[in-house]
Nucleic acid binder design. Structure first.
Lengths: 214, 214
DNA sequence: TAGATTGTTAATCGATTAACAATC
DNA sequence: TAGATTGTTAATCGATTAACAATC
């Protein structure tokens, strides 16, 4: 697809563009200029044009961007035109919450299985899926050509589970465990460290009230 | 506390330092140099020293850093030496998962209430807390001096709820709703956009397999 | 004291913003 | 054609890294 390495800063902004364009589309808006989008999204028009141009010229001089087309293109860039098969590892509260979140399916994220090593949970149904024992994980990943594993397990077991996953040919790990995983570089890891996020919020709250303003 | 504005890039790294230092502490390690920490954390020693020095000199030339002391200091900087009162708005799967996550309490994050506008959930117990109707939110925040609201509600209601929250004197919003909130600047917002995170993972997976390597 | 390692300044790198020529 | 707005180059800004003097 794209070969010139795109910076993670740009990639991190794509889903937000995608979200706003989707909303514009739903409102029936057909065209938008970088300046108008800039006003709505509170980022510079310059950045918007730079970002889009990393992937080719999506606009038209003197006219702007076709909302529909741009939305589709960004979706394609993000890989949302394909489906992705996922399993959840750890059927605790968070694992179940993610499994039950319908909106992921709308975007082509398909939950195929959920695993836990607590026998009490085995067989319990979560959205058409039965919780399976961890022992069955490797075979399941291979048989069902799973792309992504969602790790919602305690930090203590994350290292060993991710090693096991690495040997199955999985391509990405969405990691909610509170550790940094160490996996071969052909496996992508996206971390969601919730407590880090909360700590950042706390810092910002406290830094604000010292001098009133920021 | 600190007045010279610290960049968000630095602040975002603090929780990770805190985590590694906690682990070192648990292992009984007393001192560490920026170079050793660099090896473990895979960031440059230079960055580590720069980051710490934003908040004052925590080390000692020729010796390094005292793990214990540094851990405490970073905890203090992040505000983890105080307690923070929180409510959860939206008692769906995610709201319940967060409510049940014990580890937050260990760090001084205290869940004081959980609200939902679904009458079927009212009165249901989640960890010593009864789910309350949304109508009681404002009064509850004021009476209990709540600092932070966790928004685990659908995007459609996020705007109106955050407006209501803004009038209660809340200081921060931990936003899991998939929209950008618009609140007065004295209220800090920390977004956790799960689907954005997942899209980023998808992009990185796909960008990798085109040319084998990155 | 000699050795080690910080704190801090200077150099580099990368990302953002500004400007404008190209062009629809 | 004239006006608008992109695509893209150049300028700026900020963050990271390197280097080294200060000092424990």
């Amino acid at each position: 697809m794209e070969n010139k390495e795109i910076s993670q800063a740009v990639i991190a902004r794509l889903p937000r563009y995608f979200r706003y364009l989707g909303e514009l589309k739903d409102e029936g808006i057909e065209r938008i200029s970088s300046q108008e989008l800039s006003d709505i999204m509170k980022v510079t028009a310059s950045q918007i044009r730079q970002d889009f141009n990393n992937f080719g010229g999506f606009g038209q001089q003197g006219y702007g961007y076709k909302v529909d087309f741009l939305y589709e293109e960004i979706g394609r860039i993000l890989g949302l035109d394909r489906t992705h098969k996922m399993i959840i590892i750890g059927a605790g509260n968070l694992g179940q919450a993610l499994a039950n979140y319908m909106n992921f399916e709308r975007r082509g994220f398909l939950f195929k299985g959920i695993f836990d090593n607590n026998p009490e949970l085995w067989g319990r149904k979560i959205r058409a899926m039965e919780v399976k024992p961890m022992e069955e994980m490797e075979e399941f990943v291979k048989e069902n050509e799973i792309d992504i594993a969602v790790l919602t397990i305690p930090k203590a077991s994350a290292a060993s589970v991710s090693e096991r996953l690495a040997r199955t040919g999985i391509r990405g790990i969405w990691n909610f465990a509170h550790v940094d995983l160490c996996v071969p570089e052909e496996i992508q890891v996206e971390n969601v460290h919730l407590s880090d996020s909360l700590m950042k919020l706390i810092y910002n709250i406290n830094s604000l009230d010292d001098d009133g303003r920021k």
